[in-house]
């Protein structure tokens, strides 16, 4: 089965075609709007929606062309139905369902988080069920136990800011611009990760939930304590913040591994592209099998939607109407 995947839940427009028989993505295109939203200090949903409508058809044409197959060889379509931003979600949903009607093939709305989780099954070696997943992005921070396709249990999640959101807010405080993740990572390479003693929120408790707003506030107070913050001061603060986040993610992952008796941990989401956090988790969790998708598959993309669509379409739970679920919970699957 060949499945077209369409991702528009936030500010990336992603299109890909997955071939189930070879378990491979045969072509994919991605357009990131990050540069545009940088002018506004964060994602503006209305502008993101406008860009998706402009980019979807050109990316779709290119993806089909590069795949070397004809559109009539497609067996199904998948789009991200949620969770995500309402306006952007709707652009992908409307296009996907009308293509489905136009080609007369089934179309399914998939869960964004399941997509981040299942994309790892394309890798070699791939994790095998059951495994743990740490999803860290601008919109989410979750630890999930994946028992099988479609069988997920959310073990813990952020009670306030998502981890990527904390990066963005700290970057804004340090006047580094948007998106904050890469900017902080770059600045932190020149700083001392132990210069500031920042909290590791909720790491002493047994549960697996996260909280990043306190850490963010601690960074704010540290920043305000200095009247004339030098470049070194800022670099030290960025490095200490990144260290606190990495440490928190490590401690929670370690706890999840111990509590569940599983030794496979898959790490996905945009923040998983942070090389410092990767290194810290790989070193800290030695002895376990840690999986990272390639960098371009950490952030939102069409490939993960196509892969998840392939699995969902084989289940045949499909609606032919434009449906989005901006606040869809993974446990409802």
């Amino acid at each position: 089965m060949k499945v077209l995947g369409i991702e528009t839940s936030c500010d990336e427009t992603g299109i890909a075609i997955y071939d189930g028989s070879s378990n491979k993505i045969i072509s994919e295109k991605l357009f990131s709007q990050a540069a545009k939203h940088a002018d506004y200090g964060g994602v503006v949903p209305e502008l993101a929606s406008r860009d998706h409508v402009k980019k979807l058809i050109p990316l779709l044409s290119e993806t089909i062309k590069e795949s070397g197959i004809n559109a009539d060889a497609l067996d199904g379509i998948a789009y991200t139905a949620g969770p995500g931003l309402r306006g952007p979600l709707l652009t992908g949903a409307a296009l996907a369902q009308s293509l489905g009607l136009g080609w007369d093939i089934p179309c399914v709305g998939i869960h964004h988080m399941e997509a981040h989780l299942l994309i790892n099954l394309l890798e070699d070696p791939a994790p095998s069920f059951p495994f743990l997943t740490l999803l860290i992005s601008g919109g989410h921070c979750l630890i999930i136990r994946a028992n099988n396709f479609g069988e997920y249990k959310v073990l813990g999640q952020s009670r306030d800011d998502a981890v990527g959101e904390a990066f963005d807010k700290v970057a804004k405080l340090l006047d580094l611009g948007y998106p904050g993740g890469p900017k902080i990572e770059e600045l932190a390479t020149r700083g001392d990760p132990n210069a500031f003693n920042l909290p590791r929120p909720m790491t002493k408790e047994a549960h697996l939930d996260f909280s990043f707003s306190g850490l963010k506030t601690a960074v704010l107070y540290a920043f305000r304590s200095e009247k004339n913050p030098s470049d070194t001061f800022k670099a030290d603060l960025a490095a200490s913040f990144q260290e606190a986040v990495a440490d928190t993610l490590f401690l929670k992952s370690q706890k999840a591994i111990a509590q569940n008796g599983l030794d496979q941990l898959v790490i996905g989401g945009g923040v998983a592209s942070n090389k410092y956090i990767r290194k810290k988790l790989i070193e800290g969790l030695k002895g376990n099998k840690i999986f990272f998708p390639p960098l371009n598959r950490c952030t939102d993309n069409g490939a993960m939607v196509a892969v998840t669509g392939h699995y969902r379409l084989s289940k045949k739970n499909i609606s032919s109407n434009i449906v989005i679920r901006p606040k869809w919970n993974l446990s409802e699957l």
Partner: peptide
């Protein structure tokens, strides 16, 4: 309506592109 005009355009794009 921003949502309304985007919906119409996306649906028309999809129906037209596929045929």
């Amino acid at each position: 309506s921003f949502t309304g005009i985007r919906l119409a355009c996306s649906v028309a794009q999809g129906l037209a592109f596929s045929n």
